Amino acid sequence: MKSLLGALSFVLVCQGVGGLLHTFTDGAFDLWALTHRIGFLDGYEVYVSSVLLVLGVTVGTAAERLPGSA
């Protein structure tokens, strides 16, 4: 469970950072983010990417606090 949450955390952080980089560099990081490809998120990409980044850090922190083996 701990490794699954760690992998999920990694994906969420990558999507959050990739979405922010895509937005602030005018599309230079096109392959990193999926938020700009989802139609109903038009205009909210920065907010969604920020939420994904914070959620990824939160899930990673929760995964580290779980007792048990890796």
Rank of each mutant, 00 (worst) to 15 (best):
M1V: 13
K2E: 13
L4M: 09
L4Y: 12
L5I: 04
L5Y: 14
L5T: 05
G6E: 14
G6F: 14
G6K: 08
A7K: 05
A7W: 14
A7E: 10
L8E: 07
L8A: 05
L8V: 07
L8K: 02
S9P: 09
F10Q: 02
V11F: 14
L12G: 07
V13P: 02
V13Y: 04
C14R: 10
Q15F: 01
Q15R: 08
Q15E: 07
G16A: 11
G16L: 10
G16H: 09
G16T: 15
G16K: 13
G16P: 13
V17Y: 06
V17S: 03
V17C: 02
G18A: 04
G18I: 03
G18F: 00
G19V: 06
G19T: 11
L20G: 03
L21D: 02
H22M: 07
H22E: 09
T23N: 13
T23H: 11
F24L: 09
F24T: 10
T25R: 10
T25H: 03
T25F: 01
T25E: 00
D26Q: 09
G27I: 00
A28D: 09
F29V: 12
L31R: 09
L31P: 15
L31S: 14
L31H: 13
W32N: 15
A33H: 03
A33D: 04
T35W: 03
T35I: 12
I38V: 12
I38Q: 12
I38W: 03
G39C: 15
G39M: 15
G39H: 15
F40T: 12
L41G: 10
L41H: 11
D42S: 15
D42H: 15
D42C: 15
G43D: 07
G43S: 09
G43T: 09
Y44G: 06
Y44D: 10
Y44W: 13
Y44P: 07
E45I: 13
E45L: 11
V46S: 11
V46E: 13
V46D: 13
Y47H: 14
Y47P: 08
V48Y: 05
S49M: 07
S49F: 00
S50C: 12
S50L: 04
V51E: 00
V51M: 04
V51R: 01
L53Y: 05
L53F: 05
V54D: 00
V54C: 01
L55R: 02
L55M: 06
V57D: 04
T58K: 13
T58L: 14
T58Q: 13
V59G: 02
V59L: 10
V59H: 07
V59P: 03
V59I: 08
G60H: 01
G60Q: 05
T61R: 13
A62G: 03
A63E: 00
E64P: 01
E64K: 08
E64H: 04
L66A: 01
P67R: 11
P67N: 07
G68M: 03
G68T: 05
G68Y: 00
S69T: 10
S69V: 12
A70G: 14
